[in-house]
Design a protein around this nucleic acid. Structure first.
Length: 715
DNA sequence: AGCTAATAA
């Protein structure tokens, strides 16, 4: 049944690209042409097999390389086979919004229907479907989870296809766990799990029924509960892999010299370099520029393009501009180019073997961002980026781990120390883990647990996860939710508070803050703050010097702290008539502010529905800070008077923390502060900080701060 | 005394 691509053979180039982002289509003239295109896709050969397996098995796992056409074709096959008859809907989930939109548009085009009718999509803020008409619906897995809050059995769907399951996002994992549960109540529901090769085994194990539930042979009791596994080959060219032979002491320099070597010795073709973050990338751009200048005209002709998520939109688009004749484009990227952005024309990949990953320590309740070795699956994915247009080459190099500056590498829970010192072939074969650690095992679980509780999953510790988080992490999440008043003594959602907080598409602490703001009379302000906190940054990055940005921020700085400063920016933006020019002058990101307005609108509607009084406190910053305290009381810190370096201690755990340099309270150091989040680098930095009065803590959470504990600290 | 891998509701 399985078909595998033979290394060294060339696969036919097709115009299909299912991976979101860049979609292009050789404007077909008419239906016959589209049909011919569809039949050329690798997945077409499996049409009958897929339909048969879906018919006879509750769960079908489709292992498909990228470019097989599975995402766009399988939903159409299902529709053609009648799975959308009788008002039923075929769902296909994606981890990313952009992919949802792109794939839906493509399928609508192939079917010759208007997007939003037979084929539609739903993402946050955009429901492009028509009830009773839409037969194939693409949506993010997060949206499908939200839908379960109204319809726990997802009764309108006949089939749910979970695409890109190998990425193992939190939402995908929760969804898989819940779908497995739903299936027991709805035997007629079919699941298709689309996954990369490496994950197929664990996926199939997860959907394996317990022995007692297996149907006896020959008896017809509905579909076979054993998952079926089908492999579909993809399209893509052979990529020759080169490993380093000798240890390199610095992956940045190794990457830089590899780029120059490729440029000197290899035929034309673009280069994609994987590094870990903005710092690395900016440094590499500079080093390559300098080196190229030193080497004279043979090394000119390089077009260097940095790529990372924080880059302004316009600069990100540079990666898509066609390479000028006689030039070679070098895209230097984070792992955004591994999954989210597809670049055409890449022939060479330089892989550092590292990426930044989040790790959560449930003991300290702190999330860290650390540089860590990637998995084999990631390495293969990166390699595959070189084979999209013609046979390519991938250069894998990695440094001595220990030579990295100490603040860049920390070994978190779950990651074992890498003893091999370089990314040799042996390292790849023997030391690299097959798969990355699922996000759910690297994260704070507060949002995840409240979502499960809201869906009526009472036994969180006993939940059947595709990959179980540590019990410490689960217990920690339960504790936090209890302290927020979301859960009662029996760990049941409280009414109405718990249910209300679960309704908000926000972290529970932010949602709590919004609920309290109604009573405190400052909900308009708090909803603005919640919207600002839910996007990455409202400031422009990259334009001008850091110093200029710091100065621009001072125009809005409030003595009370960052949250109040956000209100000043928002007010200024409104007073300017939402002017892009005003944003530009003030180093404010216009796109971000537009998003703030949009999210603010959604939160306002949700708040109103839940009975939160919408009211402004005008200039009263005390109530604003009290409302914030009601959600974030656990993040209170006190300035350590004995040291004069701005050291704070958290009240809960006596952790040593510092105010982040980006905060308006940096160097101001009020005695008592509350932070929104911690960033760990060489120190623990508090991001988004306000000053508070310690009496607000006992007011907001008397159960959490026993009086004696606080009094002894206040002195 | 000096900072933000990626994604979503």
């Amino acid at each position: 049944m399985s078909q595998f691509w033979k290394p060294g053979t060339e696969k036919p180039r097709l115009v299909d690209d299912e991976e979101g982002g860049v979609l292009f289509f050789n404007s077909p003239s008419g239906y016959a042409n589209i049909e011919r295109q569809r039949q050329k896709l690798p997945v077409f050969r499996y049409r009958t097999a897929i339909l048969y397996l879906v018919e006879t098995h509750a769960t079908t796992i489709v292992v498909g390389e990228t470019g097989s056409g599975k995402t766009t074709q399988i939903p159409q096959y299902l529709k053609e086979a009648g799975w959308a008859d009788g008002g039923r809907v075929i769902a296909c989930t994606q981890p990313r919004r952009l992919a949802v939109q792109a794939v839906a548009a493509r399928v609508a085009e192939e079917m010759g229907v208007k997007l939003g009718e037979e084929v539609g999509y739903t993402i946050r803020f955009e429901d492009v479907t028509t009830q009773g008409v839409t037969m194939i619906k693409f949506l993010t897995d997060g949206v499908l989870l939200r839908e379960m809050m109204d319809d726990p059995l997802l009764t309108k769907y006949s089939i749910i296809m979970v695409d890109e399951a190998h990425e193992r996002s939190i939402a995908t994992d929760i969804l898989l766990g819940l779908l497995k549960k739903i299936q027991r109540r709805r035997p007629e529901l079919r699941l298709i799990i689309s996954s990369a090769t490496i994950q197929a085994k664990s996926m199939s194990d997860f959907f394996q029924p317990r022995k007692s539930r297996r149907r006896p042979d020959g008896e017809d009791l509905g579909p076979n509960m054993e998952p079926a596994v089908l492999s579909v080959e993809g399209r893509g060219f052979n990529v020759q892999i080169h490993y380093v032979e000798e240890p390199v002491s610095d992956y940045l320099r190794a990457a830089v010299s590899t780029v120059l070597l490729i440029h000197d010795q290899e035929p034309m073709g673009d280069i994609l370099v994987f590094l870990t973050g903005q710092d690395d990338i900016d440094a590499a751009v500079q080093l390559i520029t300098e080196e190229a200048q030193n080497r004279g005209k043979n090394s000119s002709g390089l077009m260097l393009v940095p790529l990372y998520s924080g880059l302004p939109r316009a600069e990100q688009e540079l990666v898509f501009t066609p390479t000028p004749r006689g030039k070679r484009k070098v895209v230097i990227s984070t792992n955004i180019a591994e999954t989210s952005i597809t670049l055409e024309g890449v022939v060479y990949v330089v892989d550092s073997g590292f990426s930044k990953q989040r790790f959560y320590n449930p003991i300290t309740d702190i999330e860290n961002l650390v540089v860590a070795p990637i998995s084999k699956a990631s390495a293969r994915q990166r390699t595959g980026r070189a084979g999209r247009v013609r046979p390519g080459k991938c250069y894998r190099s990695a440094p001595f781990m220990l030579i990295l500056s100490p603040n860049k590498v920390a070994f978190p829970l779950y990651v074992s120390m890498v003893t091999t010192r370089l990314y040799t072939e042996e390292y790849f074969a023997k030391e690299m883990s097959d798969e990355g650690i699922p996000e759910i095992q690297r994260s704070n679980l507060v949002s995840c647990v409240i979502q499960l509780k809201a869906l009526g999953i009472d036994n969180i510790l006993g939940f059947d996860w595709p990959a179980s988080p540590s019990s410490e992490a689960m217990v920690r999440a339960l504790e936090v939710l209890y302290s927020l008043g979301v859960l009662d003594d029996d760990a049941k959602l409280t009414s109405p508070t718990g249910f209300q907080i679960a309704e908000f598409p926000l972290e529970p602490m932010i949602a709590k803050m919004i609920l309290s703001s109604g009573e405190l009379g400052c909900s308009e302000e708090i909803i603005t703050i919640a919207a600002v906190l839910s996007i990455q940054t409202i400031w422009v990055s990259g334009r001008g010097s850091q110093k200029e940005l710091d100065e621009a921020k001072l125009n809005f700085a409030a003595a009370e702290g960052d949250h109040v400063s956000f209100l000043n920016v928002y007010k200024g933006f409104l007073q300017s008539g939402k002017s892009p020019q005003w944003c530009h002058r003030n180093f404010v990101n216009y796109q971000a502010m537009k998003k703030v307005i949009e999210i603010r609108g959604q939160l306002r509607r949700t708040a109103q529905r839940l009975g939160v009084v919408l009211i402004s406190c005008e200039r009263d910053t005390v109530v604003v800070r009290k409302a914030i305290t009601s959600g974030f009381f656990a993040n209170a810190c006190r300035l350590d008077a004995s040291s004069h370096d701005g050291k704070y201690k958290t009240i809960r755990g006596s952790q040593e923390v510092y105010i982040h340099p980006s905060s308006v309270l940096f160097r101001v150091n009020p005695k008592w502060v509350l932070y929104h989040s911690l960033v760990s680098t060489d120190k623990q930095y508090m991001r988004n900080v306000i000053s508070i009065d310690p009496s607000w803590l006992t007011e907001a959470a008397p159960h959490f701060y026993q009086h004696q504990r606080l009094n002894s600290m206040v002195r």
